[in-house]
């Protein structure tokens, strides 16, 4: 059983500050972290490996300092990690990103066939969730998104039983392997890393690939050139109707608020029980 987990380095949106003048993010204010959903993806791979045996590779694309998220993944329990780093990949949207990652997966697969790919639900900086299914399509394996439980993995029969989140409820899916999962946060709790993992991570040197390490790459499909979407303009959205502060004593504030709420008659109706 060989699982590849795709991970991304993102700025920590919990800590990041906004420049009040430009209304944009002050990226320097935020430490770069392993995308939280991807941490759960690595953790899930560790859980699966504990039952089936095998190994876990992690794959990332980003600037050279993104090796940090590979080390973090090793700490959680991955066996090895690859970083795709090259200016040719820069400026990629989701289509170009899934292309580059699928090319790297092709190369990984040459050494060791891949049974499962796991991605986080989405990255907290781009927030699209489009790269996972994109990779699956390019590899021609089924994508199963919004997975909240890996119920059973059967490496002999090459099948997996999954629980997938829906708009109102969930469903059980049986899929053939290889397949690609994208996982929600509630799929697991991140364990404390055992000491040997920490030591391994500290010493670990990720495998670094540039575009020249990939085979049969169409360069026009990479980076900015390979990205059909572009940002047209940025603008400040219209503010909601007021931002009005209610003044007075607590009870005055509360009665003003009641008036506002009850004015929305379609919302608060007093109906006889």
């Amino acid at each position: 059983m060989h699982i590849v987990v795709c991970v991304k380095q993102v700025p920590d949106t919990k800590i990041i500050k906004i420049n009040p003048k430009t209304n944009t993010l002050d990226r320097r204010s935020a430490p770069a972290i392993l995308n939280p959903y991807d941490a759960h993806a690595v953790q899930e791979a560790v859980k699966i490996r504990a039952k089936t045996g095998g190994s876990i590779s992690v794959l990332s694309m980003g600037p050279p300092q993104a090796t940090a998220v590979i080390k973090k993944s090793i700490e959680i329990g991955a066996d090895r990690g690859y970083l795709l780093t090259d200016r040719a990949f820069a400026g990629a949207d989701t289509l170009a990103t899934s292309y580059a990652l699928s090319k790297a997966l092709e190369r990984i697969e040459k050494d060791l066939p891949v049974d499962m790919v796991i991605c986080g639900k989405h990255a907290i900086d781009g927030d699209t969730g489009q790269v996972g299914p994109g990779i699956a399509r390019r590899m021609d394996i089924p994508p199963i998104t919004s997975v909240i439980e890996v119920t059973e993995v059967n490496p002999q029969e090459k099948t997996v039983l999954l629980k997938r989140k829906l708009t109102s409820g969930y469903e059980f899916i049986k899929s053939e392997m290889p397949c690609l999962l994208t996982v929600e946060k509630e799929i697991n709790e991140i364990d404390y890393s055992p000491m040997p993992n920490m030591i391994k991570a500290a010493r670990y040197e990720p495998i670094i690939w540039t575009v020249n390490d990939l085979e049969n790459v169409e360069r026009t499909k990479l980076g900015l050139k390979g990205s059909p979407t572009i940002v047209g303009k940025m603008f400040t959205p219209p503010r909601p109707e007021g931002g009005k502060k209610l003044e007075g004593t607590t009870s005055q504030q509360v009665s003003q608020l009641m008036e506002i709420l009850l004015e929305k008659k379609d919302l608060f109706t007093i109906s006889k029980a």
Binding site: T13, I18, N23, L25, P228, G232, M234, F235, T236, P237
Partner: peptide, 11 residues
Amino acid sequence: FGGNIMATILC
């Protein structure tokens, strides 16, 4: 990503 700012995406 972040801020009270919207981005218009074109294809």
